[in-house]
Design a protein around this nucleic acid. Sequence first.
DNA 1: GTTAGCACTCCACCTACGCGAGTGCTAACA
DNA 2: TGTTAGCACTCGCGTAGGTGGAGTGCTAAC
Lengths: 343, 343
Amino acid sequence: MQLSERKIKILQAIIRNYLESGEPVGSRTISKYTDLNLSSATIRNEMSDLEEMGYIVQPHTSAGRIPSDKGYRLYVDTMMEEKDRELEELKEMILEKEDKMDHLLKQVARLLAVNTNYATMISAPTIHSNKIKFLQLSRVDVNQILAVVVVEGNVIKNNIIPVSEALDDETLLKLNILLNTHLNGLALEEINLSMISAMKQQAGIHSDVVADVIDAIAESIKAEEDLEIYTSGANNIFKYPELADQQKASDIINTFEEKQMLTELVQDRLADENSTGIQVYIGNETPIQTMKDCSVVTATYELGEGMRGTIGIIGPKRMDYDKVVGTLKTITHQLDELYRKKT
Amino acid sequence: MQLSERKIKILQAIIRNYLESGEPVGSRTISKYTDLNLSSATIRNEMSDLEEMGYIVQPHTSAGRIPSDKGYRLYVDTMMEEKDRELEELKEMILEKEDKMDHLLKQVARLLAVNTNYATMISAPTIHSNKIKFLQLSRVDVNQILAVVVVEGNVIKNNIIPVSEALDDETLLKLNILLNTHLNGLALEEINLSMISAMKQQAGIHSDVVADVIDAIAESIKAEEDLEIYTSGANNIFKYPELADQQKASDIINTFEEKQMLTELVQDRLADENSTGIQVYIGNETPIQTMKDCSVVTATYELGEGMRGTIGIIGPKRMDYDKVVGTLKTITHQLDELYRKKT
DNA sequence: GTTAGCACTCCACCTACGCGAGTGCTAACA
DNA sequence: TGTTAGCACTCGCGTAGGTGGAGTGCTAAC
């Protein structure tokens, strides 16, 4: 069977209506709601077809219809025009004022949650290039030195290293030069054993320290991998009865609290280098099992120099896709602009 | 009316029973449950007295009794023996393996949540003494320098400072010496204007940089004040029907996600220098309004050098106080031991 | 191809009712 | 005087039955 123009209009009407009410919608409603001027009986026939084709389902006989995942998918794919929404609030937002990255991201998450009434998450940007830009050893104590590593993108990592031997200023200076000469501009993978042994040799009696320092550096950069995720508005799900029953709510809340699972969502997006756009997962399409009753919309934002993060909005399947997509576009754009202004 | 020995025993039995079942408990149950060998009628009389005295309440006429806040309070205060519980799981726990503080705290929160089936939170230790131990400026770029501040307790703060003038190595070295000579060992409050102007004078043409650096330091140390809080097991509240209704659950979840409010709990405890022990808030006693239907048990832990944090366990009023207190004692003890081992 | 009409289905909601748990009171007992 | 047995009463809860509304599918007519 083909999807006639009229069928599409009816499907659209059903989905719109369901998005608002959250209740199954019947033929009579559609007959009055649209400007098609068709009787409910005709609508019924069409709906029967649509159901057969899998775009809508009946929760039980003699109930109205609700969109299936497939129906939502069609809606999202074909009918979502690119609306340039005004988001006054967002535009005059606190973005500009915040300077600490983590605060900023928390703010964004909160803002989105309040604005959309859905649950939100945002992952801190990950550094794709982890090239060492600069290294610095300093003596903090007689037997402790501080190693500071700055990697491309001005991300800073600290590590305190215990040393058995006391190092004087001159030695420290030499080590600093040695390390910087050898390691600057390199990524972790590029540091190989022969370089390490070369450095050790040059360090002479302090070769132990060199080994410790390199270990510390490796750990610092590696630690970056488990990414930070900020969430907000998890309790918004209680606003949607279809998600608010105990079992589902508990699952979703848990996923939000133990952010571990959310990283899958992020990985999924970041893995795909090309996907800078917006992605919509409906129901079972989601990579996170506990969210199979939700829809998830994600957007990738970029802060230059290969730093990319993901923003996600999680809500019921009858999410206002239009608004969410618009909001996400604005936000990612703002983040981009913000970054440019700062550099 | 006086609280006879028998009344206390009956109250105890009621509470114990209610903790287990979560259902109002009736006279017949108590009559069978205890070794008092009293008929249900006698129990009824006593229960009537207890109700009059405010230790128990009836949810509705002809229902059994449940403990009031006052009843719980009596129970907690007088009847909670110090049990040395074995917590095998906790003892052979991951504590030892984790080295990053934030990972460790997240682990502890999760462990507690799984172990107790309540919601948990833990605040990162705050540094009471914010004395500067060590300062280091390094050039990252032509127009960016990195300021690293190490404060007492080996807490490290970074800040990247944009500079208009390029600084050569020698100048940087001089500035480093200048700053360290003047500021080491001082707390933020001790840095006054005359010191700053003295430094500026010595810095000569680079006085602007000095001003920027001091600003950055001030900000770094101050930023420490908004304390980090980790939570886990918020979804455990769904296990207790009396907390699982939508409104309450939503409130509690929200409080847990927007950690802001939890800080009140922490502040409340940390303010009181002497209170190293365990504190129990029952129902309305809590400083957080949204948790008035819960009980909150907090413990302060100490990591030496004035670093203290708070652990909190949030559950229904019919919380297993015995177990929770025991667990908290073990945990704080473990943290203490861990710290000693590491230093 | 569209529509009106009709019988049918199912759910949500209300009501009534009985059951069980629990209480308070009273009278009898030790 | 404290304790107990007995009884009437209350309340919440689960079940069963009934009703109305919303919606469907089908058929026949336009």
